[in-house]
Design a protein around this nucleic acid. Structure first.
Length: 570
DNA sequence: GCCGTTTTCGGCCCGACTGTTTTCAGTCG
């Protein structure tokens, strides 16, 4: 039973309790628990196996800890099954339709026997639904649309794609009259790997036309809501955009509020409440007096906190760390001294090694590792021994000519199904270091896949384990491995773990980075560039590293070349 | 159902917009 599945059971519990009109705080407790469990890096089964006290997890008390144990042991949750005797399980799905909450779902079910989206569609065709209180013509229309959108509503957009959408929209919005500032807040600003929608925050003088201009944007497909300070539209791309307009005096408070996450906001507001203050999107108030609001730093200070970077605002311990003065000094792109993963035309990349070196030099790097695929990756023209040896000689020649940058000899060596490496040790030994990865046999059972990688790491010629989980965002799930065990083994053996920064991968993800830091294994951030421009993709890795609390000292390629060589040695 | 600088009970973040309502409930973020 995976954490995700446990979380799903708790979410369903919350939905059904909500429909049953249970204590709303009890409902929230289940939702919080779902989030805690679903976002936890280690399987609950593992925590239990080693005797951890689950009630020490945030939002998990004695009761929920016992329920987690019950699910892990039996695969069932009796409380949910009992609840489903009273409230049909399928009603949970209706809660995900835009415009339907617990009250309307309850009313639809009791009055019309609606249990599923299909039932709802049928009900919307008839006129009985109009007899229900709160179901007018507009609501019926909205629900029709909501059912259509149900499938799409789960879809999230990769951050890198959202950046494009945001850039175009910002350019349009900057033509607004009276505009003081405009920013994208929300999960975009927290640099989540995917975003569901975009939250746009505008500070503007009175009489600004920002709101009008927003709904007139050429890409707008539908205006879903529009008030004086807030509007929501859906673009032709399907992306939903929320706009909020606030006065400048509230800019910091609004930026904090709309950056979220929701859970982080609740944590900070709770702190404010304890100080007898009120925090909302307009500022921090003592009584009716605004004591902060212009900048985010002011808002944090009023709540008794130092500035917390947006990437940390997930209520994953950042508020406690801030109170204790133990916030990390997050890594920045400028800390990076070189790239440890890229491909030349020798395998599946486009540019020559010389072109890649020039591009890396232009980025201010001190070194660049060429990591073409090896033999086994035949579709990517993987290098056989002879071609790799030729490449090493070419790199020697280039290094003799180049000034200001050193090209490192490396390869993205396949980890074969039996855990051996794809080229003989004799040739790997000639490289400065290796980046090793699994590309085939992704479907092995967890234990075997883990053993395979551990065996590969037993070879002292393995230096960096590349894209450790193999996931491709929205395309391929991570392969089954015991990542924590692999990380521990990597630390013991002096291997590093890659954070592959390619926007298709982001592998390690943010939670894994946090785990790597806790275990103390060093992270190597690589762009996995296949073109010169791709070297810039490394910034996406920095985003996730920051979300995972990584500091410059946790990352291998923030070191100068001499130190890097020392740290790579096993 | 959780939690504790208001600590084992009594709180639990806060406001905008919509639609259907004649003053507000429901939903959403």
């Amino acid at each position: 039973m995976h954490n995700r599945e446990i979380a799903a059971l708790f979410d369903r519990m919350a939905d059904l309790l909500d429909i049953e009109q249970a204590n709303p705080f009890r409902v929230r407790a289940y939702r919080n628990a779902a989030r805690t469990v679903g976002g936890h890096a280690k399987p609950m089964s593992e925590l239990l196996a080693r005797g951890d006290d689950l009630s020490r997890l945030p939002g998990i008390g004695k009761d929920l800890a016992a329920k987690i144990a019950e699910i892990v042991e039996t695969g069932r949750l009796r409380a949910l099954e009992e609840l489903e005797q009273r409230v049909p399980a399928a009603l949970s799905e209706l809660m995900h339709i835009d415009g339907l909450g617990p009250k309307r779902v309850r009313s639809l079910y009791h009055a019309l026997g609606v249990r599923s989206p299909a039932d709802l569609s049928a009900a919307l065709e008839g006129d009985r639904i109009r007899s229900l209180p709160g179901f007018g013509a507009r609501t019926v229309e909205k629900l029709r649309h909501g059912i259509e959108m149900l499938a799409a509503s789960e879809k999230r957009t990769r951050l890198v794609d959202a950046e494009q959408i945001a850039a175009d929209l910002l350019e349009w919005m900057r033509g607004s009259r009276g505009l003081k500032s405009i920013e994208v807040a929300g999960s975009f600003r927290r640099r989540c790997e995917t975003v569901g929608d975009l939250d746009l925050l505008v500070s503007a003088a009175r009489g600004s036309d920002a709101m009008d201009r927003f709904v007139r944007y050429r890409e707008v497909d539908q205006v879903l809501a529009q008030g004086k300070t807030r509007a929501t539209v859906r673009l032709r791309s399907g992306m939903q955009i929320d706009l909020r307009v606030v006065p400048q005096a509230s800019h910091g408070a609004a930026l904090h509020y709309f950056t979220g996450s929701r859970e982080h906001n609740i944590a900070v507001r709770t702190l404010a409440v304890r100080k007898k203050l009120k925090l909302n999107e307009y500022g921090v108030f003592r009584g009716d007096t605004r004591i902060a609001g212009r900048t985010e730093a002011d808002v944090f200070a009023a709540a008794g906190l130092p500035f917390i970077a947006p990437e940390l605002r997930e209520n994953r311990g950042e508020v406690e760390a801030a109170l204790a003065g133990r916030l990390p000094r997050l890594i920045e792109l400028d800390d990076i001294r070189g790239d440890l993963h890229c491909h030349s035309s020798a395998s599946d990349g486009h540019p020559s090694i010389a072109q890649l070196a020039q591009a890396a030099l232009a980025l201010g790097y001190e070194y660049l590792a060429i990591t073409d695929h090896t033999r086994r990756a035949s579709v990517a023209h993987g290098l056989v021994r002879k071609r790799l040896e030729q490449q090493m000689r070419e790199i020697d020649r280039l290094n003799a000519k180049l000034d200001g940058i050193v090209i490192l000899k490396s390869a993205e060596v396949d980890i074969l199904e039996d855990g051996s490496l794809d080229l003989p040790d004799a040739v790997l030994r000639e490289l400065d270091f290796t980046v090793c990865a699994v590309h085939y046999g992704l479907g092995l059972p967890r234990e075997r896949q883990t053993e395979r990688i551990l065996r590969a790491m037993d070879n002292p010629l393995l230096n960096v384990l590349a894209h450790p989980t193999g996931r491709l965002i929205d395309v391929r799930r991570p392969y089954a491995i015991d990542l924590e065990r692999i990380m521990r083994a990597a630390r013991e053996r002096g291997c590093a773990i890659e954070l592959n920064a390619h926007p298709d991968r982001l592998d390690l993800n943010d939670v894994h980075c946090r785990l790597a830091k806790a275990i103390g294994v060093r992270v190597a951030i690589g762009s996995d560039a296949h073109a010169c421009d791709d070297l810039a993709l490394l910034r996406h890795g920095i985003d996730q590293a920051r979300r995972g609390w990584l500091e410059a000292k946790d990352v291998l390629n923030t070191r100068g070349l001499a130190t890097l060589r020392k740290l790579l040695r096993r």
